[in-house]
Amino acid sequence: MIVWVIIVSIVTAGFSVALVGMNATKAQGNAAASAFESVARQPEAADQINRMLLFALAFIETIMIFTLSVALILLFANPLLGKIS
């Protein structure tokens, strides 16, 4: 039983990080691409766009980091293991 919990935890952690990495990088790429486009169209607004881009990337990154925390908890401090044994 405990072996199965460990296996499922490892697989879930790997898959969650892989999935969120895939989608979040796609989102960050979209954000960066539109920011570059707008800077190319309006170079005088570059400062403000830069700041907004930093914010957007930080907020997208937050979701990634939340998933990473869940994966780290599953791998290094799994609370389910204590419940079973």
Binding site: A58, E61, T62, M64, I65, F66, L68, S69, L72
Partner: peptide, 16 residues
């Protein structure tokens, strides 16, 4: 919560 987790996750993830 998001401020703390962002900083912790980034730095700790880099170390890992």
């Amino acid at each position: 919560v998001s401020l703390a987790l962002r900083l912790f996750g980034n730095i700790s993830g880099e170390h890992i």
